[in-house]
Design a protein around this nucleic acid. Structure first.
Lengths: 343, 343
DNA sequence: GTGCGCCGTCAAATCGTTTTGCCTCAGGAA
DNA sequence: TTCCTGAGGCAAAACGATTTGACGGCGCAC
């Protein structure tokens, strides 16, 4: 019928077929069609057959936007990260996507570049879009205070930090223990003058804390000149390492707060003709892909990005399904040391 | 006012305020509120003031889902890629996001792992969600045939391949020219026995074609034994290179269809104690971050991921705004050779 | 004075679902 | 027979916006 009239003129854009059309084609009411689709109420076998046939014939696909409006669920969750280009966040996002995909949830990714205003903007945007949940993996502490005020309804899980919000769960990689392990490992190997390349001020403080505690436990003094800073980048690690290597009492081991800086440090060692780990040992943090691309392969602490994303997804799901309602949970993920060639 | 009454009882979930509430609070009709928001019709200065005040007081935020339903625009575009974890696609996605962000469009990312059924599923899903556009960067040729049937309404742009669909634009990195440049470069440097590690059968054929044409132009014979295959991975490159290096007439240069395989090839060279590029030259393709992490830094062909994503976004925008309507365009992006240490 | 056009506003229809309340009918129990 | 119960179906009211058509004033030109 419809195809016939279409072939005549073909003026109308073949707009999507609605539930009403299916209903009239099957000779039932829209309600009934909806019920065979959702199974919320019983439908006679015969009617169901007719309806199903009509659906198939017309190629009906439900309009999800309309459904979302009515049910107040978007089957979409937002993940806000500094930069999807950063492998750590890419892997995290993938872990999240895999975890929620089975439940039919899509993932809306937002790049903030770590800017507070963008964080806030995307938070608002996500709420306005009616997402079913938010995974927040951007920013460490400062920005988060304001975020809590935004909404009290939709579940949020925060990665790498706690957020003061009634429905907010947290998953935090245990940086501190991991860093302590790295420090302890270097000490146990007999290195004497152990240095650290930290992150920028106010960032990655737990990694510094873990390292310090290990040094204390191992009775290693760490003079201030051996605690330098980088900006998380390879180049930043390079310059920091350069400074370290020109010290009169040159360090024989350095722990870097992330892999990229460790790779920069490695560059310096190569440039200076220093043998790693004999002349100087290097340990990183994160265990990115690149860690096994450099030579020798980087000894580092594994930051479980995929797992973090996955458990964030699980946390969200448990709240969305109503399986859990209650105060904020926090699950901490271990960061194991992985020994390779540089220490 | 509101905070006061809230602190009293706190029984009602603070459900979002609607346009109707704003209207009644301001003593006007919902229509008027909508008009001050959208500016589609003029509104008296006084009324506008009242409305704006009401909006601010009540903290009104428009429900985007409802808007989407009515306007049939979701302000969301889907990008379907094999795997966001792959840096190439991550960068591409970022380029896209940056391009469309200014227009208020969000990006919904879908990981297909290159599986046809998942490609189809996400395609459907994206349409059902009413996305305003789709960027398809997964799969090379085979899967795409079926996709065209899905929808004739929403604009699609295909990256790295053409798709037969009325509204489908294409952006294709010029693999072939890039590969030809790589081949020509090796020949010009005087390498005699040039080999290639290709992708799997039916994949990356333009790269192979470019290489072949360069060899022909340079009058280099390439016996079949020097054309081996890998599976795009580092390990695949490793085994392929191993095979190459045990040939009786050992190649003195090898062009790899992507960087990861080139890195695997480099592993073999190091393992065998071969000096690069003196004993054997290596050229990759893609210019991923890792290319400058290996030693020596990899000479490679740059695959402009960010630009590809960006122009895909522009193409989409031009159609969505109605600025362009018409048959499918294709823009090709140059893939320049970048000379570094391995050739 | 009349007609015309414009400005500002509103009521009502619309988008495509889901969900609630009600109705009918058949069958079994009392 | 009467009452009750459950199954199967429908009409209509949401959901929260946008958009269309109409209407009452007002100013201006004729």
């Amino acid at each position: 019928m419809l195809p016939m009239s279409r072939s005549e003129v073909e003026p109308s854009p073949p707009s999507r077929v609605t539930i009403a059309q299916v209903a009239s084609h099957a000779g039932v009411s829209p309600t009934t069609v909806s019920h065979v689709l959702s199974g919320k109420r019983a439908v006679g076998a015969a009617t169901r057959g007719t309806v199903l046939a009509a659906i198939r014939e017309l190629g009906y696909r439900p309009n999800i936007v309309a459904r979302n409006l009515r049910t107040r669920r978007s089957h979409m969750i937002a993940v806000v990260v500094p930069d999807i280009t950063n492998p750590f966040y890419a892997v995290l996002t993938r872990g999240l996507a895999d975890a929620v995909d089975a439940a039919g949830l899509g993932t809306y990714v937002c790049n903030t570049d770590g800017q507070h205003d963008r964080e806030l903007k995307f938070f608002q945007d996500a709420m306005d879009r009616g997402v079913d949940g938010i995974v927040f993996a951007s920013g460490e502490t400062a920005s988060q205070v304001r975020l809590a005020e935004v909404d009290q309804q939709t579940p949020i899980v925060c990665i790498g930090a706690q957020l003061d919000h009634p429905l907010c769960d947290a998953v935090i990689p245990d940086d501190e223990t991991g860093s302590r392990a790295a420090g302890a490992f270097l000490a146990a190997r007999g290195y004497k003058r152990i240095a650290m390349i930290q992150g920028p001020p106010h960032y990655g403080m737990t990694r510094t804390a873990g390292f310090r505690s290990a040094m204390q436990a191992a009775k290693r003094k760490v003079p201030a000149e051996r605690m330098v800073r980088g900006d998380w980048t390879r180049k930043g690690g390079y310059t920091a390492m350069k400074a370290l290597m020109t010290l009169t009492s040159r360090p024989d081991a350095v722990f870097c707060a992330n892999d990229l800086m460790a790779i920069g440090a490695l560059d310096v060692a190569h440039e200076l003709g220093l043998s790693v780990p004999d002349d100087v040992a290097i340990v990183g943090f994160d265990d990115v892909d690149a860690a096994t691309i450099v030579t020798p392969h980087l000894t580092t602490v594994r930051n479980p990005a995929y797992e973090a994303g996955g458990t964030a997804g699980d946390l969200l799901l448990s709240r969305m399904s109503g399986r859990y309602t209650g105060t904020g949970r926090t699950v901490v993920l271990p960061c194991p040391l992985v020994e390779r060639g540089t220490a």
